[in-house]
């Protein structure tokens, strides 16, 4: 695997859109060609070379390409967005749309990510060592197709509206989450190891949400079902199972109604 190293050499005045910073675009390109790739700041086009010092050539394919980014990326959007293979490591915090629409590969952010990250993610592994903002792993604004595959792990806390319209995959927040989690969810698994605020699983049709800590205010559309012993993300414990959201439409499978499931650690 070839490594391309990018050192931030200029902080954008507005925000720099790194739609081209992913192994798929870099594949088969030399450092100089990568530096010539385009990126927008507001309505102005410039090149990656204007904001990064780039060393190392990419591999022949995305899978053979690793990108390491050093320096302050808090004003860089879209890093790793739409990547399908390979690896990206950012030794900093990043701005919006990081890892959104990714379909494969590994993306590691050592700092925090802003809002709208991991949107509509379809596959791959996306790990954030710090905190995430709002709309983590959700559908894009207005869209009804949220995260559908892959594993998205945040080691810190996440904001509100996490995993809206989720339809598949696994999203783990090791800290706390704010309001609106798994709204309109129709599949997939959400694990919150800390506390959840309010409106957990509102209008949820299908899927599973696990909360290890407390839920500040429970939705009224959930009904107690049972107590079960489970192993969730390496933790064995007893969980209380609720089904819902009873206020929402639910499909039938083999004559049985399918509900969303909400598990709270006892």
């Amino acid at each position: 695997m070839n490594t391309v190293t990018m050192n931030v050499n200029k902080i954008p005045e507005l925000y720099f859109e790194c739609e081209n910073v992913n192994p798929d675009t870099f594949a088969g390109k030399k450092a100089a060609e990568i530096a010539a790739l385009k990126g927008y700041q507001g309505k102005k086009i410039s090149t990656l070379g204007e904001y990064f010092t780039i060393t190392g050539d990419a591999g022949a394919t995305a899978a053979d390409t690793k990108i390491v980014i050093n320096g302050d990326c808090t004003k860089m959007k879209y890093i790793g967005a739409k990547m399908s293979a390979g690896e990206v490591v950012v030794n900093s915090s990043t701005d919006m749309y990081t890892g959104s629409w990714m379909t494969g590969g590994k993306l590691l952010i050592k700092g925090n990510v802003h809002s709208f990250c991991g949107l509509a993610m379809k596959g791959g592994e996306f790990t954030v060592e710090g905190n995430a903002g709002n709309y983590l792993g959700a559908a894009y604004r207005g869209d009804w197709r949220g995260m559908s595959g892959g594993v998205l792990r945040v080691k810190g806390n996440a904001g509100s509206d996490v995993a809206t319209f989720m339809i598949g995959g696994e999203l783990i927040v090791e800290g706390d989450v704010d309001i609106h989690i798994g709204t309109h969810m129709e599949g997939g698994k959400i694990i919150v190891k800390g506390n959840a605020n309010r409106r957990v699983g509102g209008q949820m049709v299908k899927g599973e949400i696990y909360v290890f800590g407390n839920i500040n205010v429970m939705m009224p559309g959930y009904k107690y079902k049972d107590e079960v012993d489970l192993e969730v993300d390496g933790t064995k414990a007893k969980f209380i199972e609720y089904i819902g959201d009873l206020g929402e439409r639910h499909p039938k499978k083999k004559g049985e109604m399918v509900y969303g499931k909400l598990y709270m650690k006892k």
């Binding site: 927008y40 309505k43 086009i45 559908a139 894009y140 604004r141 207005g142």
Partner: peptide
């Protein structure tokens, strides 16, 4: 439908 204009709306 903000999702209709998200991609490819650059100048």
């Amino acid at each position: 439908r903000p999702e209709d204009k998200h991609f490819d709306s650059h100048k």
